[in-house]
């Protein structure tokens, strides 16, 4: 492990010295699946998950380098979202270990994982429709004393903190160009605006690691560029980003490192250009060509474990034909 990266302060993203250093460190790595990173913020080892006997995820080893933008790609049904759910505690793995900042995530609830600094967004955007945009943002703020039952009724006890949170929320909304919408219901926003709101809201939690599940899905092309800029700015202010994406242009544009999954396993990883030229990756995508028809629909309608279900159906059919 290069010493310079080793020295980068763990735990406080804001004063991380250098995107360049963290990113540069990646250049020296072997491009093989499961390669160890010099300064991993997130490590998963031997994580597997089966649905009804079908293996959805079986990842041998996976690390995310601190201070970089890492993309997780793969053909449909590769188990990316399931893996995301496992990493964040939204689903429980059958086996394996995960650590975040060196702390084990075993038996840690999804909420606790978020409080530890690892915050995710969802493939199907989850804004809280009947709360205003500003209330959505405030909800993200951590450690609010007014969120306790006995404190809640007494405004003077939480008023000060609420003001600070509101101020921070407004700054973020301005940055994401949502400030004009702050008193609208979140349910009134367009699809792209919801994606922005969800991303902004996740920043209210002050995460070290932001995990975005298909941030570009369903976003109007006009908004894409600004979304890309936002993702880059996350890294530039010292956070780590891990995202799942189908949009290859986006992956090529902004990621520092790409991890490819197929059939639940990691089959390749490396810098974007290297990976995309990789034979195995091309095969994986081509081999999954019949999935491409479903892709569009998938984004809107099929929930995460559909991946497993597709394969289950296919297994069934295969058995019947045989």
């Amino acid at each position: 492990m290069p010493a310079d990266v080793h020295n980068s302060p763990a735990g406080s993203p804001a004063d991380s010295p250098g995107v360049p250093a963290a990113v540069a460190a990646l250049a020296a790595l072997e491009t093989e699946p499961g390669v160890a990173k010099p300064d991993p913020i997130l490590v998963a080892d031997k994580v597997s998950r089966t649905f009804g006997g079908l293996v959805a995820v079986d990842v041998d080893h996976f690390e995310v380098q601190r201070g970089t933008i890492t993309a997780l790609i793969g053909p449909n049904g590769a188990g990316k979202t399931t893996f995301f759910n496992l990493l964040t505690g939204f689903d429980r793995a059958d086996s394996g270990t995960r650590t975040f900042n060196g702390r084990s995530l075993k038996r840690i609830s999804a909420a606790k994982v978020a409080r530890m600094g690892m915050v995710r967004t969802f493939q199907l955007t989850k804004v809280l429709s009947k709360l205003t945009v500003l209330e959505n943002m405030r909800l993200g703020a951590p450690k609010q004393s007014g969120e306790r039952f006995w404190v809640g009724p007494f405004r003077f006890l939480w008023d000060g903190q609420e003001k600070e949170n509101t101020e921070r929320a407004r700054e973020l909304l301005a940055r994401f160009k949502l400030d004009a919408k702050e008193s609208d219901f979140a349910g009134e926003l367009s699809g792209g605006q919801r994606k922005l709101l969800e991303m902004a809201r996740s920043l209210m939690v002050e995460p070290e690691l932001v995990m975005l599940d298909e941030p570009m899905a369903g976003v109007n092309p006009a908004l894409k560029q600004s979304l890309l800029d936002h993702v880059r700015s996350l890294r530039d202010e010292g956070r780590t980003v891990l995202f799942v994406e189908h949009d290859m242009d986006m992956v090529r544009d902004i990621s520092d490192w790409v991890v490819v999954m197929a059939q639940g396993r990691i089959i390749a990883e490396g810098p974007p250009d290297t990976v995309m030229a990789d034979r195995r990756v091309i095969d994986a995508y081509l081999g999954a060509h019949h999935d491409t028809d479903i892709t569009e629909l998938d984004e809107e309608t099929i929930a995460s474990e559909a991946e497993a279900e597709i394969a289950a159906e296919r297994l069934d059919e295969g058995r019947e034909q045989a």
Binding site: A110, F122, K126, L128, G146, E147, E162, S202, V205
Partner: peptide, 22 residues
């Protein structure tokens, strides 16, 4: 109060609220 806000958030989508650390 913020307490009520969490409840209303849960009503809308409890996983979103969970993802925010509540």
């Amino acid at each position: 109060s913020p307490w009520g806000r969490v409840l209303k958030g849960i009503r809308e989508d409890e996983n979103a609220v969970r993802s925010l650390g509540k």
